[in-house]
């Protein structure tokens, strides 16, 4: 299987490119402080594709923004985010000067936002977006545009036509691909993608994913792919991280996590998908709702929906269990999860 091959490849060169520690985003509100990202730890490995999965409102976009120190006012980001370039000193992302941060963004770590069409200035041609970005970073515009054309062709777009278009003249799939090209024009090492395919039809989603995997190889990219659609990334990602209620509850190698999911929530997610190849538009099919970010309960935040919940779960924060060497899980009873939430269909076949 392709996934396992790539997995062994990453493991051999495994070193961390982005280290996230205790990342917390809080909003001061009338009702109290809302923590919409709650002490997240995560290592992104060099040249891997990391899938981050979670239901709507679980804090995925917050995590993505945090990686570029781009959380919007009045949200406050605390914790530690370290970027390790291939050569040179590690970069403490949250303590950069304005100029350094500007260089980090787009030149080292780039981002594709949810909703491509709204990421473009509606009154500027696509070409304008490329040239202004190159100019803003004092890059060689000529060479940069050459690269832009190559990227666009790599994404199966007609470069001149797209460059001369205005955003509204592109279809959803075209503008999404143009946005990916724009995010790569300054040759970043890390690409964070927040639901890049959410608004597209199934065929377009799959073809963009295929293109993405080619791009990743060609340009040696590290990709963080955020989505609410687990089956979509399952085949693409080397590793998966599952988000629930503003925290990461489980992460591990993609194949292992899908085969032996250790967290009841992950298992419920997988169970909600009878066949991994089928689309899953929303994960709200799991009963119950996520906790309020202002009053995150003591103990396990999944307890109100979990069939295994007991007193311990309500009292103690579950943390630091390992379901495998590279497979941390936040659940006191992860060993019993497979009995409590069995898969009805054979996933392995």
């Amino acid at each position: 299987m392709a996934t396992t091959e790539r997995l062994t490849a990453t493991e051999s060169t495994a070193d961390t490119i982005l280290r996230v520690r205790d990342a917390t985003v809080s909003f001061e509100m009338d009702r109290g402080t809302a923590r919409v990202l709650n002490g997240v730890d995560l290592d992104v490995k060099r040249r891997e594709i990391l899938g981050v999965v979670g239901e709507s409102g679980s804090g995925k976009s917050m995590l993505a923004s945090a990686m570029l120190d781009a959380v919007e006012e009045p949200g406050r980001l605390t914790g530690e985010i370290i970027y390790y370039p291939e050569e040179g000193e590690p970069v403490d992302v949250l303590n950069l000067s304005k100029a350094e941060l500007k260089r980090l963004r787009w030149e080292e770590i780039s981002m594709v936002f949810q909703g491509a069409l709204s990421s473009f200035n509606p009154t500027m041609s696509v070409r304008g977006h490329f040239t202004e970005t190159l100019r803003a970073h004092d890059a060689d515009v000529e060479a940069g545009m050459e690269r832009a054309r190559e990227l666009l062709s790599d994404l199966y777009l007609d470069p001149e036509r797209v460059l001369d278009s205005y955003p509204h003249e592109l279809s959803g799939g075209m503008s999404q691909r143009a946005l990916i090209a724009l995010s790569l024009v300054l040759e970043p090492n890390v690409l964070v993608m927040d639901e890049p395919t959410a608004a597209l039809d199934l065929l377009m989603q799959r073809s963009i994913l295929a293109l993405l995997s080619d791009l990743q190889e060609k340009y040696d990219l590290t990709v963080v792919f955020i989505t609410h659609d687990l089956p979509l990334v399952a085949g693409l990602a080397d590793r998966l991280a599952v988000m629930y209620a503003f925290e990461l509850v489980e992460r591990g190698p993609a194949a292992e996590l899908i085969r032996d999911a250790a967290h009841p929530y992950t298992r419920a997610l997988l169970k909600a998908v009878p066949n991994l190849d089928a689309p899953l538009s929303t994960m709200r099919s799991i009963e119950g709702s996520a906790p309020d970010p202002v009053n995150i309960p003591d103990g396990c935040s999944y307890a109100s929906r979990c069939p295994l919940a007991d007193d311990q779960c309500l009292r103690e924060d579950p943390g630091g269990y390992g379901a495998g060497p590279e497979h941390p899980v936040s659940c006191h009873h992860w060993r019993r999860a497979d009995e409590a939430v069995p898969f009805e269909t054979e996933v392995g076949e």
Binding site: K102, R105, W106, M111, F113, E132
Partner: peptide, 8 residues
Amino acid sequence: RVARLRGL
């Protein structure tokens, strides 16, 4: 927001 992140 994207424009700001692009460092314009």
